[in-house]
Amino acid sequence: MPPSVNMVALVSVGRHPQSGRSRRAEQDGRAVEMGMNLSCDIDGQLSVVHVGDSKEPVLRQYAGMGLDALTVLEQDSGLDVLPGVVTYLKETKANLVLTGVRAERGESSGMLPYLLAEQLGWPLVPRVAEILSIKEGEAQVLLALPRGQRRSITVALPFIATVDNAAKGARQTAYGPGLRAQLNVVESEDNTDDIATSWDISPAKPRPKRMKVVKAKSAADRFKAATAKPAGGGGRVMKNETAEEKAQAIFDLLKQEKIVR
C-alpha cells in the first residue's frame, strides 16, 4: 500500500548572507526538516528533489540531514525549472509539496510554488510555521505571522506549503551520511527562460537611506531643523528620584513606544 502522504521537498542551493558561498537554503532546509519529522509522525514518505547540477556539493549537505537518497532533475543553470518539477510531481503522484518561501539565488521571486499550485490546481499555504497533523487527508497548519504570532488554518491534501523561517530549524548535517547518500539523476527538459535573458543583472547597489525630510514653512523652522539635536540622542539617567517616579518614567517610555497600550 502506498503511503497516504507522499511528500516532496524541493530544495535549492542557498547563499550565505555574509560570504555569498553556497549552503543549504535556510527555508528549504526547514522544509526538509518538516518533511522528515512528518514522515516519522504520520504514514508518509518524503523525497527530496533538486533541479539543477547534480555535482553541486551543497546537495551532500541536504543529504547529510539523514536522507538515503536525493533526486536531481539535471538541468543547466538559468533555465526554467517549472516544467520539469510539474512533470516529476505528476509522475510520482506527490500530494504534499514543501519548499522555501524564496530562493536565495537567482531571481528569488518566490513565484515557483505559486506557479506550481496554479499548474497543478492545488491550494497554496503560505509561510507555514508548523504542520500540526494530517488526518484523513486534512492538514492542520500553523502559519507564521510577523513578530512570532501564529494563525491556524486547515487545508485538504494535496497542497503546496511554503516554509517560513519560523519553522523548526534544519537539523545538523552529518558528513558521512551525506557522502554516502544516493543521487538519483533524472534528465530534465530544457526550457529557456526567455524573459530573464533580457535582464541586466549586476551586484546590488546599496540603497540610499531615506533622510528625514523637513518641510519647513519659514526660515526659522528650517534653521531649527538644521541645528536641532536629534531627539533622544543622549540617554536620560535617573538617579535620585523615587522608585515610583523611575518606574513611571520607564512605563511612560513603554507607552510612548506603544509596547503597552
Partner: peptide, 27 residues
C-alpha cells in the same frame, strides 16, 4: 511575470533585488 523586491521603478524600467538582495536586476 511580476517584479519582486522592486525598489526603483519608472514607467519603463524597474530595478529589483535578486539572490537574497545581493544582486540588482534591471528589467
Amino acid at each position: 511575470r511580476p517584479a519582486t523586491q522592486a525598489w526603483q521603478v519608472s514607467a519603463s524600467k524597474t530595478v529589483c533585488r535578486g539572490a537574497s538582495a545581493s544582486t540588482d536586476i534591471t528589467r
